[in-house]
Amino acid sequence: MTIHQISIFIENRSGTMIKVLEVLKQAGIDLIASTVADTTEYGIYRIICSEPLRAHEELQKAGIVVTISDVFALELDNKPGRAADAVRIFSEAGINLSYMYSFLLNGKGILIFRTDDNEKAKAVIKEKGLKYIEEPNLAGLA
């Protein structure tokens, strides 16, 4: 029910993100979404891509400080209030979201988030019948 996200520890210095993107380019891996927040001196660059496991391997080989983590990717109708509804469900279930980001893909809203309790989150998604993206479908999305 979760997908793999690549997280890279980066310094707030020009050129660091380029290095990451070059590695992915050389490996022929497609980006689906990526995000980095502005932070004081360092930050975490998070990427959803077509082949996360291979991306992780290639980045590690390039000497980049990278880790792989499990996140949820909900697929929502592109209508006002859908994101609010989804977040409320988790909030009411007492599940904390560590971070969240969203984007539009093929006319659908995609909501990526990480929780502090994946098992509970899975149960809620199942119970509420929420639509989500599965890892094998990532390559097809890009």
Partner: peptide, 12 residues
């Protein structure tokens, strides 16, 4: 230099 991390800004 950081070698290992686990996608958690708070922990950093």
């Amino acid at each position: 230099e950081l070698d290992k991390f686990d996608d958690d800004y708070g922990r950093l």
